[in-house]
């Protein structure tokens, strides 16, 4: 199932998408397919798998630590592509890779996208690739039928957003705050303001999902009610993996049950957007 088909399906059911992030190979490559399975069992609609990078400048301490664990476990970009292949054998779940541009550049942009496509990857997010530098990447992604998910942030102007939307497919990733990834206590005012401002440009055009700091069911509920089409939860899942490090059964159960509580928050009868 493609990313946009998944969003269409959810829209019909009046649900937001729950998008979960985990770092590929954390704590060990052989665990990741089971981790994805546990997330899907918990109701996750789209899974993002990170290819670990040595210098993840957009990530906070939780995901940085997961990159270190994954790299120490011997995870390479090919390991992660093999994980995707493994997952896709038994599941229809749309898979999005998240990484930094050097991982793609080093392999060769064309070759990377071809390999990703063969492994069953549906979309890619590159944390440090703005649209201005993305021509070759976009061209090869299109050729290989992979969605290019670009990011917008509270500092993105509407004219910049237009440029970004022209390059984006699958969904638009809205970075909710000024900052790096990580668990936060509340959904900030700036998140709601940015969401309201940008939603105006994406509605009826492309799904919009919000990430960075979205970690609790009430956060999910809040952003969906303000019109987001999906919520991206990363550090909260990664933290569970870290806390239960070494005990696979425990990790899987914890992930499934946390995903269930987040997924429940994506279902609501009336949204704030409709009410206002």
């Amino acid at each position: 199932m493609s990313i946009s088909e998944r969003f269409q399906e959810l829209k019909k059911q009046n649900e937001g998408a729950l998008i979960a992030y985990v770092t590929g190979g954390d704590p060990s490559p052989k665990y990741t397919p089971k981790i994805v399975e546990a997330l899907v069992k918990g109701g996750v609609d789209i899974v993002e798998i990170g290819i670990p990078f040595s210098d993840p400048i957009a990530d906070g301490p939780v995901i940085q630590a997961s990159d270190v664990r994954a790299l120490n476990a011997g995870t390479t970009p090919n390991t992660v592509l093999n994980i995707v292949r493994e997952v896709k054998k038994t599941s229809e779940i749309p898979i999005v890779l998240l990484t930094y541009y050097n991982i793609i550049f080093r392999k060769g942009v064309g070759r990377f996208l071809e390999d990703a496509s063969k492994s069953g990857v549906d979309g890619i997010i590159v944390a440090d690739l703005p649209v201005e530098e993305a021509e070759e990447y976009k061209e090869n992604a299109e050729k290989n039928g992979i969605d290019t998910i670009f990011l917008a942030s509270p500092s993105t102007s509407s004219s910049r957003l237009e440029k970004i939307l022209r390059m984006t497919s699958g969904f638009l990733y809205l970075i909710s705050v000024f900052g790096v990834t990580g668990i936060r206590e509340h959904v900030s005012q700036i998140t709601i303001q940015t969401l309201k401002r940008l939603r105006h440009y994406t509605v009826n055009r492309i799904p919009l999902a919000v990430g960075f700091g979205i970690s609790k069911p009430e956060h999910v509920k809040s952003i969906i009610s303000y019109g987001a089409d999906g919520a991206i939860v990363g550090s909260a899942f990664v933290k569970l993996i870290e806390e239960k490090y070494g005990d696979l059964t425990n990790i899987l159960e914890a992930l499934t049950s946390y995903a269930k509580s987040l997924k429940a928050a994506t279902r609501q009868e009336y949204s704030q957007a409709e009410l206002s």
């Binding site: 400048i57 957009a58 541009y101 944390a127 440090d128 690739l129 703005p130 201005e132 530098e133 670009f150 990011l151 917008a152 942030s153 509270p154 500092s155 993105t156 102007s157 910049r160 970004i164 970075i175 000024f178």
Partner: peptide, 20 residues
């Protein structure tokens, strides 16, 4: 132009920093 010295240079940063 565009911050490029031949094919080198450029701007490979998270979106949040682009306006800055």
């Amino acid at each position: 132009k565009g911050g490029k010295y031949g094919r080198y240079g450029g701007r490979f940063v998270p979106e949040t920093l682009m306006p800055a």
